[in-house]
Nucleic acid binder design. Structure first.
Lengths: 348, 348
DNA sequence: TTGAAAGCGCTAACAG
DNA sequence: CTGTTAGCGCTTTCAA
């Protein structure tokens, strides 16, 4: 009833027109008479014909595939971003080809080569650092790249992030206003721009208030290492402990809260205020109620797609840009709030 | 330094061989002399040549692309499955093209058509039901389909799930052994085979023990609806409340626990035992410590990939199968345990 | 507006 | 083992 693979030639034969006529009917801006179009559509419907995207890609040079490099999906920020990104692209007729940049599959450069093999129209890298070598390879191949949630100091590469520096500073101001005097910081992977900027903003905020950083550990954006960092930072005597801690992302912050409350028996926020970054879904769960800086994933995705489309459709006029999206600090129960101070104090 | 798009012809010219020789060098099982291979590789390296996967796909009929249909990534079970799946396929030279089957992009059938347009070698659908119409269209197109985490009664379609019936029964046995006598159940979306099988197993386990189902609500695998279900089930007077509840997946169970503890002020497990299904990462977090049935995602992915490869590589000998993978019940703190009963009792 | 013809970059017989 | 020759299914000039 339905042929294995219907070609435009078969449709043409049935409709009594040329093969190119069929092609035109399925090409948005082509000129076909109503009559022809009708005949062709009818024949196509009867045969169950649909254009072969790959063949179209070959000749047109546009695959309508966007390569997405992602390192891991454990941090909930990424699945939700991926979902939004995929939806946004789908709406514009593009689709996402996923490349995991994990340990097993060799270095990131290999992955990028594989992507290029698929003749993708663009590449989005989520939280992955790129060598300038591979970057220029993409440029040479004419494939636009957008760094998502990472920026890089390389010449002219487009990146979309939240305003991490401002975010870090907001956290410092919030904690200072809350009356904290011994701030701790648990860093993410030190190679990441997000980590660097969040810390720099945080430190500047503290400096402005004249408060020194009381403790610092590294969690590498990794839950288990974040737990160790928390133990190192809070395992000692009360006077050696920070009275608040900013953790470079929620993914680690949730793990840290677990250690604080269930392992070390500390109360949050009475004994220690905790602030994260990202505002992933679990941060809002009552069991954590984590104060955090929101990354506006919707906006970030929008900007990413916009930049991509611009570079794909009008490469000549498209300039690389570095987008930084401001996000609000969301006060929740895991950190003492400025307003509450005079009312509640600490009853310990 | 690096041409925009290097073709095999250019490599051939530089190496002083025919274009087909180049093709052979980059085709695993081809016969080329060492000398030729060397010359070609050298020229290719100098030019930065890599075969065009799309062109290869066109002529060979194999795109090495697997279409993945997924509805939403909010439930943590899916991102981790996606990550594993993508990794496993990547290792075999395949890649995943993502299709979100969400609201906006029309019905699932449209999505399947789009997938077919890309000449994918296979399709994995995660928690999506397929009409038998579209199923046969795939079969007609010779594209193998594997249902992941869903099974279907359609003729000969391959599916990979956990043993949901056995899992549901295990929960019943566990709760009954724990001394519970008023079991509640919060269902997932009733159109899902997973929901049906889990409930059927649960009910059979209860029936065997001679205990009737005390309450039932529907949460549709949706957190907000699960919360409403929890309120409906536990909002009344103590004697109208179940003493334990099995929730069709962890995604909902976590939300239900929040309502129970933070909204209704019930203690878990003292006032009510809670059991979920999936064993997503947050289930193990101390703040929830959710008793649940583990879905062995690793095994499920392995079986999915194995089935896919078999159907792709040897379609004639590959028979459709229905794989059900047994998973253990993981006892944690959210449910009273059988062993603890005589020791602890209830101190209310 | 339409059809004929020329490829996109590659693989796969087919002779040699 | 190697080169020659056909296409894969489609878009796109180019004439008509």
């Amino acid at each position: 009833m339905m042929a294995d693979k219907v070609t435009s030639a078969e449709v043409a034969a049935r409709a009594g027109v040329s093969q190119s006529a069929v092609s035109r009917v399925f090409t948005p801006g082509a000129s076909v008479s109503k009559k022809t179009a009708e005949k062709v559509r009818k024949a196509a419907a009867e045969l169950g014909y649909r254009p072969n995207v790959l063949a179209r890609a070959m000749v047109s040079g546009k695959s309508r595939i966007i390569g997405l490099v992602v390192a891991y999906l454990e941090n909930q920020f990424y699945p939700s971003a991926l979902e939004k990104l995929s939806n946004a692209l789908q709406q514009r007729g593009y689709h996402v080809l996923v490349f995991m940049a994990s340990q097993t599959s060799g270095s990131i450069d290999n992955v990028m080569d594989e992507i290029l093999d698929y003749q993708v129209d663009g590449i989005v890298t989520a939280s992955v650092a790129m060598s300038s070598d591979i970057t220029s390879r993409c440029l040479a191949a004419g494939v636009p790249v957008v760094l998502f949630n990472r920026s890089q100091d390389i010449e002219g590469i487009t990146s979309v992030t939240s305003d991490n520096f401002a975010g870090g500073r907001k956290v410092a101001e919030f904690l200072v206003a809350g009356g904290h005097t011994r701030p701790g910081y648990i860093a993410g992977w030190e190679g990441a721009s997000t980590q660097r900027d969040r810390e720099a903003g945080f430190r500047q905020g503290l400096a402005t208030a004249g408060i020194p950083l009381f403790a610092r550990e590294v969690g590498d954006f990794h839950t288990e290492r974040a737990r160790q960092a928390a133990r190192a930072m809070f395992g000692g005597a009360p006077e050696t402990r920070p009275d608040c801690v900013f953790i470079a992302n929620d993914h680690m912050a949730l793990a840290v809260m677990d250690v604080l409350r269930f392992e070390l028996g500390l109360r949050v926020p009475e004994d220690v205020s905790v602030v994260g970054y990202d505002d992933v879904p679990p941060a809002a769960w009552p069991a954590y109620d984590l104060t955090t800086v929101r990354q506006r994933a919707n906006l970030m995705v929008e900007e990413t797609v916009a930049a991509l489309m611009e570079h794909i459709e009008t490469p000549q006029t498209a300039a690389p840009r570095r987008v930084e999206i401001d996000g609000p600090l969301i006060p929740r129960g895991s950190a003492r709030r400025p307003m509450n101070l005079p009312l509640e104090g600490r009853n310990t």
